[in-house]
Every structure is written in C-alpha cells, then in structure tokens.
C-alpha cells in the first residue's frame, strides 16, 4: 500500500458523511438545473429582448435589447388581460374538483360487493390522456353531431328533405355552440377539465379515508356526533393532509391548463379562451408566433404568479417539517 493511495482513502473517509448525500443528489441537481433552473433565467433574459427566435448564418442571435418594452406592451394588450382573467376563472372553478372529489370519495367509501369496480370506474377519467378528454368533450359540445346538439335537435328542430333529396334539419332556435361562444367557451373547457380532476381528488381522499382512525370515529359517535358535525369536526381534520395535496394538485392543474385548450379551441374563438400558458405558446412558437421576447415576458409573469403560490407551498412544507 503506498502513501498516496493511503492519504486519498483517508480524505474520502474523512469526508464520506458530508459527500454521500451530495453524490446522491447530484444527478437530480444536474438535471433540475439544466431543465428547470437555467431555462427560468434564460427566459427572463429573453423577455428583455425583441427576438424572432432566429440565429443568423454565423450562429449569432438576431435579438435586440429593448429593456422593459415587452412588459409595457403587456399592460396595453387586451389579449393578455383576457388570458389573465381566464387563468383566474380556471383557478376558481377548478377548485370545485376538491369538494366534488371529497363527496364522491365519501360516497364510495363503503363496503359493498364490487365497490372496487365502482372505484376504478370513477378513477377512469384520470387515466385517460387530457388530449383524449379534450377531444371527447369537443365532440360532446358539437352543435351538429354532439350530445348537446342531438338533444337540442330533438326539442327544437324538425327533419326536412333538402333540395337534393338528402335529410337535413331545420331549427326554430339554432343549437348552442358552446366552444365558439366567447362567454361560454372557457367554462366549457373547465367543465371538461373537471372530469379527470375530480377523479384525481377523489383518489386522494379515498386513500386519506383509509387512514382515518376508527377509534376517534367510535369516540365521536359515543359523544353523539353524527352526519355533518361528524364530517366537519372529526373526519375533515384527519383528512387535512389529503385536502392540502388535493388543493396543491388542483392549483397546479389550473395554472398549467394547456392541452385541453390546445385541443378544444386553440385559444379561440378569437383568443377568448386563452390562458397565460397558451397565449405564451401562441405568441412565441405557434405557426403565427415568432415573438420570443414577448412570449418570454408572458412566461415571466406566469412564473411570478406561480412563485407566490410555490413560496407559500414551500413555507408550509417547511413549517410541517419543523413541527415534527
């Protein structure tokens, strides 16, 4: 055994305890910084430029520095405020998934033959890809051949034979065209989004209900608690971790609502169903978008909104850790 080798080993031995966690964390840290942390700063940087995303033949960026101009434009952009407003609508109405999920979970939390099958059926929409959910609801809302259209036609339309002898329909009131109506389109998409989200919250509550202590319920029952009071004061406090998680995933789901919008309306009609995430995509990388700087400014605003929420989330986690 030579001296150099020995000293090396002793250095490693001395620092093994400090090094080991870092070694384990290193891969995650590396990828997290490459794919998350660095892009955040890149996109903030780009938001101060006007850039169409192109490099010239020498590989130099064609961006020009414009300072805060992109942000000034945001303040004067109707579409941006429409998107921001829609984000708020999404946040508020998406929250319905939490009580709805709780209600279904309470309903399904019983021992009946075949309950597992019912549970999995209720969980089914969450397993389906959002894209498929979007497509299905798009058809569902379709005024020509969708469910709504068909019901409407049964009520207000009659079949006629048109000029070339084909069957056609004539209506006293034309069927509602939910996804093409600026007032209703966003709600239509949110409703579609709620379907899988409720299933998600339901499964969170179902697992939570498994951990509710039977002793406490027994005790509460002896004290005469029933129904609503039992739920409010005994069950719900024990479900607090599940509620917290359900709210977290629902807020995240609402803020990153993108696939449904892309599939169902592509932000239309005329931009009225845009949310910040989709508007950013549209301005920066869609077919008619080549404004990387402006898109990045939108992304930065979205990031700041999320940051408020993420900070609260981290603070809350930190509090929990300390409490233990």
């Amino acid at each position: 055994m030579n001296a150099a080798n020995g000293s090396q080993r002793s250095w490693f031995q001395r620092n093994r305890i400090t090094l080991a966690p870092w070694l384990f964390v290193a891969p995650a840290l590396l990828f997290f910084s490459v794919y998350v942390i660095i892009p955040i700063f890149q996109s903030i940087t780009i938001s101060f430029y006007e850039w169409n995303g192109l490099y010239n033949a020498q590989g130099e960026s064609t961006a020009t520095w414009v300072g805060l101009q992109n942000y000034e434009k945001l303040l004067d952009d109707e579409r941006f405020f429409v998107s921001l407003k829609n984000n708020v609508i999404w946040l508020v109405f998406y929250m319905l998934a939490v009580p709805a999920g709780l209600a279904i979970a309470l309903f399904l939390n019983q021992t009946v033959t075949g309950i597992r099958i019912y549970k999995s059926l209720f969980f089914f929409p969450f397993v389906i890809s959002q894209v498929v959910v979007g497509l299905i609801f798009g058809w569902f809302y379709n005024p020509d051949f969708g469910v709504i259209g068909s019901v409407w036609k049964a009520a207000f339309c009659e079949e006629v034979i048109n000029i070339v002898g084909n069957v056609s329909t004539r209506c006293t009131h034309s069927p509602p065209d939910i996804l093409a109506d600026e007032t209703w389109a966003t709600y239509g998409i949110i409703f579609a989004g709620l379907w899988p989200q409720i299933a998600y919250c339901m499964i969170l509550y179902l697992t939570g209900l498994n951990n509710v202590s039977p002793d406490q319920i027994e005790a509460a029952r002896l004290d005469g608690a029933r129904g609503w009071r039992m739920l409010r004061h005994v069950i719900l406090p024990q479900l607090a971790p599940a509620t917290f998680l359900a709210i977290v995933v629902t807020v995240i789901g609402a803020l990153r609502s993108f696939d449904m919008i892309a599939i169902m309306t592509r932000g239309g009609p005329y931009g009225s169903t845009n949310v910040l995430a989709y508007y950013m995509y549209e301005t920066a990388i869609s077919e008619y978008g080549d404004r990387y700087g402006y898109g990045s400014a939108i992304a930065t605003v979205l990031f700041l909104i999320m940051l408020v929420y993420i900070s609260y989330f981290l603070w809350r986690m930190y509090q929990d850790e300390r409490g233990r």
């Binding site: 809302y141 005024p143 020509d144 048109n162 000029i163 056609s168 034309s174 996804l179 093409a180």
Partner: peptide
C-alpha cells in the same frame, strides 16, 4: 352557415356535400 367557428375547412365540406 351557422356554427362555422367550430368547424375546420374539412368539416365545412359536410353541409356542402349534403346539399345544405
């Protein structure tokens, strides 16, 4: 035609083909 905002150009062929 009504409902044009929910139709792609291909969808819009349907009423044309049906004679509507």
């Amino acid at each position: 035609v009504d409902n044009h905002a929910t139709m792609s150009w291909q969808d819009a062929i349907a009423p044309f083909a049906n004679g509507d």
